[in-house]
Design a protein around this nucleic acid. Structure first.
Length: 780
RNA sequence: UGGCCCCUCGUUCAAUGGCAGGACUCCGGUUUUUGGAUCCGGCAAUGGAGGUUCGACUCCUCCGGGGCCAACCA
């Protein structure tokens, strides 16, 4: 309403519409459908925790609003089911949305705040004779509803008087009836092909304590009734939801129309997020928690925002990810690598570097005095990260390096430490391995003996000699002990929900998804930092202290994500130190080569359907298509009265008219069959070209009117003779010399481009065949 | 099986009926005191068959494949 409201999320330099939803919003602003207003909402039910799938919806709803001056996005709890909803969920959801970086206009909304208004709307529906109280039991209602292939039957209570319905509904509210004994239903159509529309249930009786309204209500509204009206109450303009609500759109519109909402909000559906190697359904997430496969909703392996936060993933990474994956109507499953990329990309720029050794191997620097030590200054960020800062790193005679940074018998391509080899200790010295000490019984390597080059302090040798390997390390004496938890994907397969009948998705949980390392050593500088800093442990990955278990005197780090590890890839190992899941299974994908497509002639199944039209020049297929639809037959025959050429008219009816109505009815068209017929006549007698006719057709589809009027109005009379086309061809070629060259070099696909340019220049009035001929002549 | 929706590189998102492009992955190379990051380059797609059109990823038909709907859940 008021464009002056300030929007905390407003991004003044919004990008161009980048998906179909933003395109629709932009179009609605141009057409001034809601007075230029954009109001969205994020409507969670407070019965669980938010996860990364919700993040997609949050980013979309808040994002779309933020991209328009004065745009707002409400946070509204869809709290109509007292059986499952709790304050703690409501609170955690608000916390998570804020953490993600969004804020909502004004107060938090609750559908439960609208219960009284909703009740009034329900009474209105009853008075309109569009709703009735039904006494059927739950099982009976199910039975009366029919199935997807059979129509349902009408409830025996469907035709109660308005007075009786009013009375009963009022008494339902007053608590006179038992739970489940009665419901309020919309009076729609028990034979509707859309199951949702078979007298949709609007209210049910529940003697339950609601976490906000307490014991005030005995009846609670259903989603389909509540959601559209809540949107209307909040003057939402664009109600965005996921694909599975597509069928519900019909009842959404039906209710708003029934109670005569002006400027009703419109629902648009988009595909929900699916991520490889994880599950995102509330039900499955609950099982992971309740059956103790994870430690809780905030287990760092969980895809919940709480889990991601504890893991150390940044809100920025999640928002970038949501931007990157886009919004569409295609069911999809995103490659987890994309998410990992976003996490690393953000952390690389913000995480200070420290050194930590996960699997310590003792190194003794033989020529470094035992009673000596020194402090090395190490930058906190590499040269390519534009941030300042450094920390002190102590060096001494006894060090730890990573166990797999030493190999007694290295394979080709390995350029870390090995007997006789020289490597660099990062920020410190060059060292050369002189000896290996093994356990007398097991033969395990227990210690490496090395010498260092005092001249190479800082990691550079004055004589210019190069070393290929650089290792991270800590001083044995100065480093601090820590537990480090390594996380991996929670499931072994890309799509854990895709399971054979009777199987359980839990059989796919990755038993190695957490590995606890308790002997790790971290450089002491971390003791100076407050908890919660996200570090890069150099050469290993990104880590953060665990917000629950880490204490000042017993550090616990979570690995957020490992660094990319090219060596692991080369050497055929996965990861650095922990068992990995088996390689990705091939994804399920439709068979690209249908095996039996030759089996059935295309029309065999439909020969008997509809009326077989009998006009000269119509193919069997054409007459079947038109004959299958009585409105279309009438339209077709109307057209014939204006232009008696069945073959030509049929092509327009089938290829253009059907395209225009896309599944709807010809009756909704703003022009008549006669108009179409006269348009075809103009093409047939060459008054206008076909391409001009296409423009005229589009204009007719938008505003109606007869072809001749439109041609007159828009000045589409044919004026393009060969000479003026020639001129347009010349100017087109002159403005695209580079394309001309490419064409002459053999890129003949450019012909379409040239034709398109000339057609545009002539306002689609030129004859394309002439254009093409002239172009070919000029380009040869 | 009735209705509705969807099908473009391995993945994902683009392309007013007119040059099939970007990102991630992968593969090379550059660079590097992180086998990270960077930079450069490369591989790679319109599910199939017909039709309309000068021209089809786009419009029409059929086939194939996938998804959603038969809670007093949302």
């Amino acid at each position: 309403m008021k464009g002056s409201k300030k929007n905390p999320n407003f991004k003044p330099h919004a990008a161009q519409p980048s998906d179909f939803i933003r395109a629709k919003v932009a179009a609605d602003i141009v057409s001034d459908k809601y007075g230029g207003r954009v109001t969205t909402r994020f409507p969670p039910e407070p019965n669980g925790y938010l996860h990364i799938g919700h993040a997609k919806s949050i980013c979309l709803n808040f994002g779309v609003a933020a991209e328009h001056q004065g745009g707002t996005c409400n946070l509204r709890f869809d709290d109509t089911n007292p059986a499952t909803e709790e304050v703690k969920y409501s609170e955690s959801i608000q916390k998570d949305v804020r953490w993600l970086g969004f804020d909502w206009e004004g107060k938090t909304r609750y559908a439960s705040d609208y219960f009284e208004q909703l009740y009034v709307y329900a009474v209105q529906l009853i008075e309109l004779s569009l709703a009735y109280v039904c006494d059927l039991s739950e099982a009976e209602i199910r039975e009366y509803r029919g199935t997807v292939t059979e129509p349902g039957r009408q409830s025996p209570h469907r035709n109660r008087s308005i007075e009786e319905n009013l009375d009963l509904f009022q008494r339902m509210r007053a608590g006179e009836f038992a739970d489940g004994s009665r419901v309020l239903r919309a009076k729609i159509d028990m034979a509707s092909p859309n199951m949702i529309m078979r007298d949709t249930i609007l209210y049910r009786i529940r003697r339950l304590h609601h976490y906000r309204t307490g014991d005030e209500w005995y009846i609670y509204p259903m989603y389909d009734f509540t959601h559209c009206l809540s949107d209307a109450i909040e003057k939402i303009t664009h109600s965005l939801c996921t694909l599975e609500f597509k069928d519900n759109r019909e009842i959404y519109d039906w209710i708003l129309r029934a109670v005569a909402i002006q400027n009703p909000p419109e629902q648009t559906e988009f595909a929900r997020l699916n991520l490889d190697y994880t599950v995102l359904s509330k039900r499955k997430l609950i099982r992971l928690v309740e059956e103790r496969h994870v430690s809780g909703w905030d287990d760092p392996r969980m895809p919940t925002l709480a889990g991601l936060r504890r893991r150390g993933v940044t809100p920025t990474a999640i928002r970038t990810f949501c931007d990157l994956i886009g919004v569409a109507r295609t069911d999809s499953r995103i490659d987890i690598a994309k998410f990992e990329y976003c996490i690393r990309d953000d952390l690389n720029m913000i995480a200070p570097r420290v050194m930590g050794v996960l699997h310590p191997l003792r190194v003794v620097i033989e020529n470094y005095p035992a009673d000596s030590q020194e402090i090395l200054e190490a930058p906190s960020y590499p040269h390519d990260v534009p941030k300042e800062g450094s920390r002190d790193v102590p060096f001494s005679r006894i060090l730890y390096i990573e166990r797999d940074d030493f190999l007694e018998d290295p394979p080709p391509g390995y350029f870390r430490l090995a007997p006789g080899r020289e490597v660099r200790l990062r920020y410190a010295y060059f060292i050369t391995c002189t000896d290996v000490k093994k356990h007398p019984d097991s033969g395990d390597i227990v210690e490496i003996r090395c010498t260092y080059d005092p001249e190479s302090r800082g990691g550079r040798s004055p004589d210019g000699r190069k070393v290929k390997g650089t290792l991270h390390w800590v001083s044995a004496e100065h480093s601090v002990p820590a537990e480090v938890r390594l996380y991996d994907r929670l499931f072994n397969v890309p799509d854990p929900e895709d399971i054979p009948d009777g199987a359980d998705f839990l059989t796919h949980v990755n038993s190695h998804s957490i590995v606890r390392l308790t002997n790790c050593r971290i450089e002491p500088s971390v003791l100076n930092d407050p908890p919660g800093i996200r570090y890069q442990f150099e050469r290993l990955g990104y880590f953060v202290t665990d917000s629950v278990d880490s204490k000042a005197d017993s550090l616990v780090f979570n690995r957020i994500i490992p660094l990319r590890d090219t060596w692991a890839k080369i050497s055929g190992k996965r990861g650095r130190s922990e068992p990995r899941v088996e390689e990705s299974m091939p994804k399920k994908k439709a068979d690209k080569v249908p095996k039996h497509y030759l089996d059935q002639p295309p029309t065999s199944q439909h020969e008997s359907a509809g009326v077989q039209l009998n006009y000269n020049g119509l193919s069997q297929e054409e007459s079947r298509i038109i004959g299958g639809n009585t409105a279309l037959i009438a339209f077709f025959e109307d057209a014939l009265t204006a232009h008696d050429d069945p073959a030509a008219v049929a092509k327009w009816v089938i290829n253009d008219v059907l395209g225009e109505i896309s599944g709807g009815s010809v009756d909704s068209l703003p022009f008549s069959g006669v108009d179409l017929g006269s348009l075809v006549a103009l093409v047939s007698n060459k008054t206008i070209s076909r391409s001009t006719a296409k423009s005229v057709f589009s204009a007719m589809a938008v505003g109606g009117g007869s072809p001749s009027e439109i041609i007159e109005r828009d000045g589409l009379t044919e004026t393009f003779d060969a000479q003026s086309i020639e001129k347009a061809v010349k100017s087109t070629l002159a403005t695209h010399p580079d394309k001309v060259n490419e064409y002459k070099r053999g890129r003949h696909g450019l012909m379409g481009f040239f034709v398109g340019q000339v057609m545009r220049e002539t306002g689609s009035r030129a004859d394309p065949e002439t254009v093409k001929r002239l172009l070919r002549d000029s380009l040869s």
